[in-house]
Amino acid sequence: KFNKERVIAIGEIMRLPNLNSLQVVAFINSLRDDPSQSANLLAEAKKLNDAQAP
C-alpha cells in the first residue's frame, strides 16, 4: 500500500511548478525514508508550492 502511495506522491511532487530542485529532492528523500508519511509529505509539498507561487 505505502509503495503505491509513495510512487503517486513522488509523481505529484515532481509536477509542482513552484518548488525548486532542492525542495523536490528533499521531499522525495523524506518519502523514501518513511513511505507511510506519503499523504502528509504530499500535503506539505503542495502547501509550500502554493506559498511560493508568483
Rank of each mutant, 00 (worst) to 15 (best):
F27Y: 06
K4Q: 14
A43I: 11
K47S: 09
Q52V: 04
Q23C: 03
L48T: 03
N20V: 06
F2V: 12
A9S: 03
L41D: 01
K4V: 05
I13T: 01
P17N: 06
L22F: 11
N40E: 08
A51Q: 09
V7S: 07
S21E: 07
P54Y: 11
R15K: 08
A43C: 10
L16T: 00
E5S: 06
L41V: 13
N40W: 14
L31G: 01
N20C: 10
D34Q: 06
A45K: 00
R15G: 05
A51D: 07
E12W: 12
K4G: 09
P35V: 05
I8P: 02
P35D: 06
S38V: 14
K4I: 06
P35A: 13
R6K: 11
S38L: 12
L42E: 02
V7L: 13
P17A: 09
F2E: 15
L19V: 01
D34H: 14
P54V: 10
I10A: 06
R15P: 00
E5H: 06
P54A: 12
K47A: 10
A43E: 06
I28Q: 02
K4H: 08
Q37E: 07
K1V: 05
S21L: 12
E12R: 14
L31W: 05
A26E: 06
S21R: 13
E12P: 01
L16I: 01
R6A: 15
F27K: 00
R6D: 15
R6W: 15
Q52M: 11
N49V: 02
K46D: 01
S38I: 15
I13H: 00
L19R: 00
A51F: 09
K4W: 15
L31S: 02
S30A: 10
D34F: 08
F27E: 00
A39N: 10
S38A: 11
N29S: 13
F2M: 12
F27M: 04
I28A: 03
I8A: 07
E5F: 10
N18V: 00
Q23V: 02
D33R: 13
K46A: 04
M14H: 04
D50E: 11
V24Q: 05
M14A: 04
Q37I: 08
F2L: 14
S36H: 08
S36A: 11
Q37F: 07
R6S: 15
I8H: 06
P17R: 13
A9G: 02
L22K: 11
P17C: 11
P35C: 14
D34R: 06
R15L: 07
N40G: 07
L41A: 08
N40C: 10
K46Q: 05
Q52S: 04
A45N: 00
A45M: 02
A53R: 08
L31C: 03
S30Q: 13
A9I: 08
R15Y: 04
I8E: 09
E12I: 15
V24K: 13
P17I: 09
A39P: 04
A39W: 14
I28C: 06
S36D: 04
R15I: 05
P35S: 06
G11C: 15
R6F: 15
L16M: 12
N3P: 06
V7N: 08
A9V: 09
R15V: 04
D50H: 09
A53P: 05
E5R: 04
A26H: 09
L19Q: 00
N49E: 01
A53N: 08
R32H: 12
M14D: 01
Q52R: 05
Q52Y: 05
N18Y: 13
L48G: 01
R15W: 03
K47L: 05
S30Y: 11
N20A: 07
A9C: 05
L48I: 06
S30R: 15
G11L: 09
A53L: 06
S38N: 15
A9W: 09
N40A: 09
Q23S: 02
V7E: 15
M14T: 04
I8M: 11
I10M: 12
Q37P: 03
P54L: 09
Q37N: 08
Q52F: 04
N40Y: 13
L42C: 03
D33T: 13
L19A: 00
Q37M: 11
L41T: 10
D33I: 14
E5Y: 09
I10L: 08
P54Q: 10
F2K: 12
N49D: 04
S30G: 05
E12V: 14
D34G: 03
S38M: 15
F27L: 04
V24C: 06
A26I: 10
N20M: 07
V24I: 12
P35G: 08
N18L: 02
F2P: 13
G11K: 12
L41W: 07
K46G: 02
A26F: 14
A43M: 12
E44C: 12
A9M: 06
I10G: 02
A45V: 02
D50Q: 10
L48R: 04
V25M: 13
A51L: 09
I28E: 02
I8Y: 11
I10F: 04
N20H: 12
L41I: 11
L42Y: 04
I28D: 01
Q23N: 02
G11P: 02
N29R: 12
S38E: 03
P17L: 11
N3G: 07
A53W: 05
I8L: 11
D33Y: 11
V25H: 11
L16F: 04
K1N: 15
L22R: 12
V25S: 10
N49P: 01
A53S: 09
E12C: 14
M14P: 01
I8K: 11
Q37C: 06
A43W: 10
L31E: 01
L22Q: 13
S21N: 10
R32A: 09
E5A: 08
E5I: 10
P17T: 07
L48S: 02
A26S: 11
A51V: 09
I13G: 00
A43V: 07
L42I: 06
L41M: 10
N18R: 03
D50F: 11
K1P: 13
